[in-house]
Design a protein around this nucleic acid. Structure first.
Lengths: 71, 71
DNA sequence: GTGTAATGTAAAGAATACTTTACATTATGT
DNA sequence: ACATAATGTAAAGTATTCTTTACATTACAC
């Protein structure tokens, strides 16, 4: 089970937003954005909301919950 | 800034689901559900997805991100 | 070439998110 | 009354999520 995201794509679509700009908008460090973008770890719901808000879209547009595995 | 939730209401509406049943469906302990329901801490996005899935609704129906404070 | 900006990796530390365990309270049925 | 179920609080421990710091790579402009 894993959460995937479209952060990189959304950044591109929103005036080529940089990771630092997104980090500033979401109130976190760039490292956090990098880690989440790369799926290093799953963000807290609070942060997920902030990221979604920075893009002006619902959470489900940014993150997708997908069942992983043979099932 | 705070995330609120309708977990208790949704549990009632879904055949009076108990906290333990929700915990089982979401794959966490009852204590976790209690804590999140009471706003003790904000869940991870992964858990938020699981809870929303247990209710069969989008995350935004379960959790709401609200600006807090005089702003 | 240099300088700047953007992106990426890594590691240690702090803070937070869960788990486990224990106990308490309330409500219902017999 | 007792028994069971549901809910609630608390605390310690574990795991995960972020922050900070450092360094590296890539890309572009001059």
């Amino acid at each position: 089970m894993e959460v995937k995201n479209n952060i990189r794509r959304l950044r591109f679509e929103k005036n080529q937003m940089t990771q630092q700009q997104l980090a500033d908008a979401a109130g976190v460090t760039r490292q956090t954005i990098i880690a989440i973008e790369a799926g290093k770890y799953s963000p807290s719901l609070t942060l997920a909301f902030k990221v979604a808000e920075a893009f002006g879209v619902p959470i489900e547009n940014v993150f997708q919950y997908e069942q992983q595995g043979g099932e």
